[in-house]
Simulated assay, not measured.
Amino acid sequence: MGLFKEDQNIDVEDLYLMWIAQGMISYENIRDKDTTLMEVAALYLGRKLPKGITNLVHLRRLALRRCQFDKLPSSIRNLVYMDTLDLCGSMNVGVPNVFKEMLRIKHLSFPYYDKEKIGNFRVRLDVGVAELESLIEFNSKVHESKCVDRMKNLRHFEAHIYDNESLSAIIDAIVIMDKLVFCWVEISMGCELGTNERVLEKAFTCPNLHELWINVKLGKALPECGSDFMIAILLEKILLEI
């Protein structure tokens, strides 16, 4: 880790390329010739974040895309200057509840969580969320929705919603987010739209919601299209799997 400066951005793929360039990983040690050096590097890194990274207290950006870690250590709270944590493309990585101590976080991309493997795992988004400009892979099974209305600076928001309470809270928050450039919401199994027609109508007419995926049966929950304008909104916004 000594090759990286404290205030330098580190992408996990840069680490892999450095190891390959230094000869630490080569085809001589690969039995399966269909395996790439990058895939071997990912296995070499293991399932834990190297301890040295959390000592780089001035680190600004940490990208761990498609990583295979079981969880991140609670010591990432040491990275108090970090403004970007990117776990895009990763699966079921445990993220510790440390964001109330990381007040400079502006860009947060969570891993995708398999609903069958989540268990009771929860992530609190506390005081630090006020400065967020992007929040990717928000998941109502894992993340608290009551904090979303405090995210006044969000420009990019993507969320998976699995229950009616979270759906109402998220849609109400999106309505007042006037800085949003892109907003994507997926309504998934667990939401009962037949008992939540009003919030669905609000979602269809919300100018801040750019893409809406509905992966539950609508039944009679679809609001009546009273005008050509409403029909145009529905055609542009909705990708239905009925």
Rank of each mutant, 00 (worst) to 15 (best):
F4K: 14
F4Q: 11
E6W: 00
D7L: 06
D7N: 15
N9M: 09
I10P: 09
D11Q: 10
V12H: 07
V12D: 11
D14L: 08
D14E: 13
D14I: 01
L17M: 13
I20P: 01
I20Y: 11
S26Y: 05
I30Y: 02
R31Y: 14
D32L: 12
D32R: 13
T36V: 10
L37N: 03
M38A: 05
M38T: 14
M38H: 10
L43M: 13
Y44S: 10
G46V: 04
L49A: 05
K51I: 00
K51E: 14
G52F: 05
N55I: 00
L56P: 05
V57Q: 07
R60Y: 00
R61P: 03
R61C: 10
R61D: 01
L62G: 01
L64S: 10
R66H: 11
Q68T: 12
D70C: 12
D70S: 13
K71V: 01
S75I: 10
S75H: 12
R77H: 08
Y81I: 01
L85Y: 02
L85H: 03
M91G: 00
N92R: 07
G94H: 15
N97K: 08
N97W: 07
F99T: 06
K100C: 11
E101D: 14
E101M: 08
L103H: 12
R104I: 00
I105E: 04
Y113R: 00
